[in-house]
């Protein structure tokens, strides 16, 4: 489990909770617009060592079937994964318009 995007993103006056208490892990916006560069995984080089998963400040990398995959909705393009990768499997590419 993890916080995830919800369909309901705005709250009218009557829908705003009375107390400052609300459902945990409620996301209404993505972070993809922050990126100027994006990490791209080269599956052939990825050995599934999970170093990128471990060190990602945003937790957007998971290793599935032995290969790293990135949640581009929430990746900010910091590049830590590319630095930490010992096999050169993460390439930073310019984000296209």
């Amino acid at each position: 489990m993890k916080p995830y995007l919800r369909e309901k993103t705005t709250f009218s006056a009557s829908e705003v909770p009375q107390a400052t208490a609300f459902e945990a892990g409620y996301l209404v916006s993505v972070n993809s617009g922050w990126r100027s560069i994006r990490p791209v995984i080269e599956p052939a080089r990825c050995i599934g060592c999970e170093q990128c998963y471990l060190y990602c400040p945003d937790g957007v990398i998971a290793v599935q079937n032995g290969k790293a995959v990135i949640d581009y909705d929430f990746c900010k393009g910091c590049g830590i994964c590319a630095k930490i990768c010992k096999t050169g499997a993460v390439r930073m590419e310019a984000e296209r318009e």
Binding site: Q18, A19, T20, A21, F22, E23, A24, G25, Y26
Partner: peptide
């Protein structure tokens, strides 16, 4: 319901 709830976790005092 304005409390920590392990069955229905909350973010509080936001």
């Amino acid at each position: 319901e304005n409390r920590v709830d392990f069955d229905d976790p909350k973010n509080l005092a936001f």
